[in-house]
């Protein structure tokens, strides 16, 4: 695999405080709570960076504002920002995001993963790769890659 780190010294940001939702307890038993930005963010914020022991949140790879959800039309789009422009880990990060959301969201959802415009050298190629169903499936057939993804996702299930 890669020798040496791609971004040896990333900037680490502070975690945002976990917002505790104030659930009105007397609330209607049958009221629907739609899936929203924060819920999606809670799913992916703890994904570990493939080469650092920090979460994507701490590296500001994903932020809550970069998530668009449309619960009615079952569509979610996550835009992430790699730490450096030439980061070859971008595809792995994207794959992690996709797998995590596939495992966490109802099957009716269409998940769209994109790199933030202008933050990566081969932006178009990566975007294409991440949203190609077959290539994603093929990638997950690769046991090494799958292990790597699982390792990154492990903290999110804690």
């Amino acid at each position: 695999m890669v020798s040496g780190l791609i971004n040896a010294n990333p900037v680490v940001y502070e975690r945002k405080e976990r917002r505790v939702r104030t659930a009105p307890f007397s609330a209607d038993e049958y009221a629907v709570e739609p899936i929203d930005q924060q819920e999606i963010f809670d799913h992916i914020r703890d994904i570990k960076d493939p080469e650092h022991p920090y979460s994507l949140e701490e590296l500001k790879v994903v932020t809550e504002d970069a998530i668009e959800v449309d619960d009615k039309h079952s569509h979610v789009r996550v835009t992430f920002t790699p730490t450096v422009e030439h980061c070859s880990m971008a595809t792995v990060i994207g794959l992690c995001l996709r797998v995590k959301l596939m495992r966490s969201l109802p099957s009716r959802y269409k998940v769209d993963i994109r790199i933030a415009p202008g933050t990566h050298a081969t932006e178009a190629a990566v975007n294409k790769q991440l949203n190609d169903k077959e290539r994603v499936a093929a990638a997950l057939e690769n046991p090494n890659l799958l292990d790597m993804v699982d390792e990154c996702l492990a903290p999110t299930y804690a």
Partner: peptide
């Protein structure tokens, strides 16, 4: 469980994610 992922309540969905992972 994959049906429970679409539960109307958020708490249930969160638990469902954990449960799915455990069983998968």
């Amino acid at each position: 469980i994959s049906k429970a992922l679409d539960d109307p309540k958020r708490v249930v969905r969160q638990e469902a994610v954990r449960c799915r992972q455990a069983w998968a």
